[in-house]
Write a protein that binds this DNA or RNA. Sequence first.
DNA 1: GCCGTGTTGTAAAGTGGCTTTATCACTGAG
DNA 2: CTCAGTGATAAAGCCACTTTACAACACGGC
Lengths: 164, 164
Amino acid sequence: MIGALLRQPIDAVYRRMLDRLHDAGFTDVVAAHFAVLRYPGPAGRRPSELAEDAGMSNQAMNYLLGQLERLDYVTRVEDPTDRRSKRVQLTKRGVAAAKTIRSTVARIEAELEQQLGTKEFRELQRLLVQLNETRFVRGGADRGVRGPPRHGGSVSSSGGKRDR
Amino acid sequence: MIGALLRQPIDAVYRRMLDRLHDAGFTDVVAAHFAVLRYPGPAGRRPSELAEDAGMSNQAMNYLLGQLERLDYVTRVEDPTDRRSKRVQLTKRGVAAAKTIRSTVARIEAELEQQLGTKEFRELQRLLVQLNETRFVRGGADRGVRGPPRHGGSVSSSGGKRDR
DNA sequence: GCCGTGTTGTAAAGTGGCTTTATCACTGAG
DNA sequence: CTCAGTGATAAAGCCACTTTACAACACGGC
C-alpha cells in the first residue's frame, strides 16, 4: 500500500498549490508548469539543466518554457560565456507566482503540523528525508515513470467493442 | 519541500513496479494501467466505480479497460441484476500480473525496512497512514491534479520562437 | 402500463504534455 | 581547421486523458 500512502498526499499538495495560484490571479498556470516553478526554480540555469532536474527531455522542458515565456513567467536570455546556451530567469510575475507557491507550502506544513501534532509532524519530515536518501529512491533517480515504452508494442486506440 | 519528498519515492515505486512487470513477461503493461491493476483491483466492480476510485472520468477508465481487455488482463461481463452495468474481473493473466505487483510491493517494503531499520520503517508507515487520514489529504479527495483546466485560457502549441 | 429522469457504458473527437526525430549554432580538443 | 560533441528548439507523432454525444436500461410517480 506504500504506493497509495504516498500518492494521495502528493495529489492533495498539487491540488492545493494549483488552487491557491489560481485564486491569487495566476489562472494560466497548469500542473505541468510546476516542473519549472517549484523549488529551486530556474534561477539562471540552462534549459537542459532544468530538463534533467525535472526528469524530462530537453524538448519537453523547452515546450514548457515556451509557454511560460509567452505567459510572462520566465525569460530566456543568452549566456554571454557560451553562445549556444540560454539562461532561464523568473520575471517579476514569475517571482510573484513562486512566492505564492512557497507560502502555500508553508501553509500546508503548518496545517499538517496542527493536525498531526508538532512532534509527529517533525518525525514524519525526518523519516521522509531518510526515505529519500535510501538507495531505493536514489538509485535510478533519472527519468520518470512516464518514460518511453521501450518494451512491448503499443495497444492502439479506442475503448471496448460495440455489440448491442 | 514536502512535494519533492513525497514525489520522488512514489516515482521510484512505480518505476520499480513497471520494471518488474516487464521482466516477468507482462511487457504490454504501461503505467496508466496501474489505475486498474493496483490494490484492490477490479474484483467484480463496475467501470464507473473504478473510475471514481482512480479519480478519472468513466470514459478514461473505459479506454483503459478496453486496452486491458484486448491484452487479456480483464474481462467485462454483464451484471445479471442490472442490464446497464458491467462487472470487471481479472483474467488468469490479470491475476498473475496482480500477484507480481503485490510481490513487488512486498519486496520494496522489505528493502526499505532493511535500509531504514525496522523501527524507523514501521514508524514511517504509521505516520504516512496518519497523514492520509488528515483533513488536508481526505478533504476533496476526488479528481486528481490533472483535472479539466476550468480556469484560464489554454496556451496554444509549440515551443519558443525561431529567430536565428 | 407508460413516462420522464437519472444512471451506466461507450463511441467519437479534441486537448495537451510529453516523446522521437531532425536541424542549426556553437564549442573545444586534436 | 576540422570534427565530434553539446545546447536549443522546431516539427511531427503518441497517447492518456478530456468533453460531447448518445443509446440502453432502471425506477419512481402518475
